[in-house]
Simulated assay, not measured.
Amino acid sequence: MLAAVCFPVGDLDGYIARENGAIDWLYEVEGEGDNGYSDFYETIDTVLMGNKTYEHTFELADQFPYPDKKCYVFTRSEREPSPYVTFISGDIPEFIENLKDREGSKIWIVGGAEILDVLLKGDLVDEYIITIVPTILGKGIPLFKNDNPEKKLLLAMTKRYGQMIQLHYTVKS
């Protein structure tokens, strides 16, 4: 069974981006190496993201950054086919439940507070690996939206990368 993993980077007060979606503040922080990204990337075989995050990847990189993984993009509109992703416009929780029943490693929920919100409300996230950047934005796009169900988590590990701290939690059964 696949495990769905949330692996975001956020500021100290819980925002993943400025109100306009900008993440420039992330590049101003002293990290260490790739801040654990390569090690984490090797543990996943499936990538999930929303359409906004998918579009944003091409602003950050010249080519699609996950060509060696199964990648699904949730969208509300018609999209041209892509060699790297499968566009999904159906019921997100139902799709994820079916996906989690397959054999494999982990499902990575890439960015997108919208997708994470749907998965939280559907109790479909198994692990949270959250890297905290020592910045307080004061306002912006929150990692967690309002009115989520209460979740009890267990701290599995912490790791420091320069000025950042990574918290790895599993969902308490």
Rank of each mutant, 00 (worst) to 15 (best):
I141C: 09
K106L: 05
T170G: 12
I136V: 15
V125F: 12
E94K: 14
M49I: 02
R102A: 14
P93L: 01
G90C: 04
P83A: 03
I115M: 09
G104W: 13
Y54R: 03
E80A: 10
D126H: 02
D39Q: 10
R102Q: 15
Y41I: 04
A156S: 13
A113M: 06
L116C: 03
I109Q: 09
T158N: 13
K159F: 07
D39W: 06
W25E: 13
G140E: 06
V125W: 11
P142C: 02
I23P: 14
R79P: 05
Y41F: 15
D13F: 07
V110S: 05
A3E: 15
N20M: 02
L119N: 04
V29N: 07
A113S: 15
L2S: 13
K100R: 03
D45H: 03
D13A: 00
E150S: 11
V9Y: 15
Y128G: 02
L137V: 07
I96M: 10
G111Q: 03
T46M: 03
V133D: 13
G104E: 11
G111H: 07
P134S: 02
G33K: 01
V9S: 15
T43H: 09
L99T: 01
S105N: 15
G138I: 08
L124A: 00
D39N: 09
V125R: 04
V171F: 12
E28M: 08
C71Y: 10
T46D: 07
W108R: 01
Y128I: 00
I141H: 11
E30K: 07
K70L: 07
A61V: 01
D13P: 08
D62F: 02
V133S: 08
D45A: 00
G50I: 00
N20K: 02
